[in-house]
Simulated scan of single mutants.
Amino acid sequence: MHMADALITPAVGGVMLAVSAGTIGYSVKKVKEDLDEKKVPLMGVMGAFVFAGQMINFTIPATGSSGHIGGGILLAALLGPYAAFLVLSAVLLIQALFFADGGLLALGCNIINMGFFACFVAYPLLYKPIVKKSFTPKRITLGAISAVIVGLQLGAFSVVLETLISGVTELPFLSFLMLMQPIHLAIGLVEGIATAAVLCFIYQANPVLLDGEADMERSGTMTGKKVLAVLIAVTVFIGGVLSSFASAYPDGLEWSMEGVAGTAELERGGSAYHAAADIQGRTAFLPDYGFKNSDESSALAGTAASGILGGAITLGAAGLAGYFITRSKKKVKCQN
């Protein structure tokens, strides 16, 4: 559900970027107060996991469409909503800058659509009340599926509103809405099941990680460190191998656009659009998750390289962000 720049006006993009920046700033403040430094490695690993997971488009049967995970509920269940929002923002920024996935003008929209509603609406209002502190596989599954579906529905509706406010006449409000909501309901169901599966594995392996604790030594059937090692191995496998077998069908947003406008790629002229495209052209060293000017013979290698490099960059960025935030918290405490 990564929006391209052509779906919004620069004004809408600027407002949403300001809103997302403000939310990021507030999240940093909250993370400074609450984040246990022992959870920093988990931030990095889960960021890489979500990056790799978003590369796997799964087919929605009988639709000719596909979807991918958003990851907001998964991150929030393990990191809390504020750290989760920061990690997902890092994922989306890295995707836009280095892989040209989602527009730079639309970055603020993508952060709000995919991060805000999952982390700050669906997670506290659905997942937490359903799961509470009495973790069971049944509660985790029900909470994850419900929260993912609602978060994705709100995000999809937000996309439609943003195009409406931007005056994108190629996508009439009602027609666009009637395609966006049902297809993202189906995508949300699949993502919810996948999210529940990961959380249930972690619950069985090391339930303290779902309790909000970060002790990497305490264990269920595995220590926290072993859980991280398994997640890293799975991330490498997803990004380096499974990503090459992702569905070729358009994702839910592209499918909806084709159903309404007959195309998934709208064109917009103007200096702001050209400037954003120029920046992406310079920074994206693996555009569309492949080598520049590559042919079919090197396409799989480009996808695998994107999955592994993107995951590594995200792991480093999310981990470093968590490290510097916790370090700044220590300095403040020492000064006081």
Rank of each mutant, 00 (worst) to 15 (best):
A214Y: 08
A276Q: 00
Q181L: 09
K39T: 10
A214G: 10
L189V: 12
M43D: 09
E265P: 14
K38E: 04
F99K: 08
S294F: 15
S256R: 01
W255D: 03
E37W: 10
V87R: 08
Q54G: 14
A284H: 02
V15Q: 01
A272M: 12
A205F: 00
P41F: 06
A248W: 15
A83H: 04
S158F: 14
G192Y: 00
A18F: 03
A118L: 06
R327Y: 12
Q335A: 13
G310V: 02
F201H: 04
L125W: 07
L253T: 09
L189N: 07
P10G: 01
E191G: 07
I325L: 10
S219H: 11
V40A: 05
E254T: 13
F49Q: 10
K225Q: 15
E267K: 15
A76K: 09
E170M: 01
G53M: 05
K225P: 14
V31T: 11
G220A: 03
K330Y: 11
M55R: 10
K38D: 06
G220K: 04
C119H: 04
K32L: 03
E217C: 09
L104C: 01
L210I: 13
L179S: 06
A205P: 05
S158Y: 15
I238M: 12
I56S: 13
V87T: 00
F291H: 05
A264N: 13
L107Q: 04
E191Y: 04
L88E: 01
F245M: 10
A196R: 06
T303I: 15
I112L: 13
L189H: 00
S256T: 01
A275N: 14
A246K: 14
A48S: 04
V45M: 01
V40L: 09
G22Y: 03
K133R: 14
A156T: 06
V148W: 06
A299E: 15
L266A: 07
S328W: 04
L88F: 10
G240M: 07
T163D: 02
Y26N: 11
G80E: 00
A261N: 11
Y26D: 14
V190F: 04
G192D: 01
L107G: 02
A214C: 05
L42V: 12
V50K: 00
Q335V: 13
L315G: 08
A229G: 05
K226Q: 14
P41G: 05
L199I: 08
G316S: 03
A261L: 01
